[in-house]
Design a protein around this nucleic acid. Structure first.
Lengths: 138, 138
DNA sequence: CTTGACCCTGTAGTTCCTACAGGGTGCATA
DNA sequence: TATGCACCCTGTAGGAACTACAGGGTCAAG
């Protein structure tokens, strides 16, 4: 029910130093301490750190992670504020899903051609290719 | 048909300094120069830089971006090498799609509850919550 | 009671940009 | 022709987000 920093790190795939860093910058609250001055964490911190790490893995910078966390931290916000914040992030999430889906297609196609024994043309760059500035004929 | 570094930056949403940085670390080849010593780029560089930026936005570190680019750069690789590399990245891409989809659901739910006029409980942390270590009962 | 795995605080290094400083290019326009 | 102004050049230094020690304390096992 209570973990050490090392256990929390293992459970979330985070280096111990990184957890202390997040505490230092205020992304994680200062945890309880044991009699021997060891940090002691519960399941709430496990969830929060897990969220942070996965959001980071998805390319969100820490200031955006902080904003996302504030959606659940700050129960005093009014609807309009929450709405605007969530809407922006939703748009970004959807954009990323589109890009990842294109990348997945291209990696799949590459694997399929490999299965046939030949390397085949790699169009992986085209998968995430030029910005969708409508109307260009490059 | 040929762009300056500033145009390339605008087209890909990249700062000029970042493009020069990518050149310095060998992620982009040294481009042609004009008579006035300006860098001159073509559409190949536009595609490549676009790919790099979007892969970065999706959370891939530069060494992985380099590996992905090598799939299309290195025409001498054998199938087994390409296969292993592509397979690893495909797994990671799929994992990210799962996470982003969960995050999208949670943000949508939050927006829906807002639309109803109430802030509603935010389960955004749960969306990307603890690692899927099967069998835990926290 | 000591040994090894873990924890503590600090600080310095790495990655990936980002922002000047100090100077040159190139095109419009007065 | 000159004189802006926006853009380019090569540095180098700063910032964000970690990551890796150094030097020392804690604790369960043997």
């Amino acid at each position: 029910m209570a973990f050490t920093i090392g256990e929390l790190g293992k459970a979330t795939g985070t280096k111990v130093e990184t957890i202390r860093y997040y505490e230092r910058i205020g992304l994680l609250a200062k945890p309880e301490r044991t009699s021997g001055n060891y940090r002691s964490y519960g399941k709430a911190e496990l969830g929060r750190l897990s969220f942070i790490r996965r959001a980071r893995d998805l390319g969100f910078p820490l200031h955006q992670v902080r904003a996302l966390l504030s959606l659940s931290d700050d129960r005093t916000r009014d609807c309009a504020t929450v709405d605007a914040l969530a809407r922006d992030h939703l748009a970004e999430v959807e954009r990323k899903i589109v890009d990842l889906t294109a990348l997945r297609s291209e990696l799949s196609a590459l694997l399929d051609s490999c299965e046939g024994g030949t390397v085949g043309d790699c169009r992986i760059i085209e998968a995430l290719a030029p910005p969708a500035t409508s109307g260009e004929t490059l």
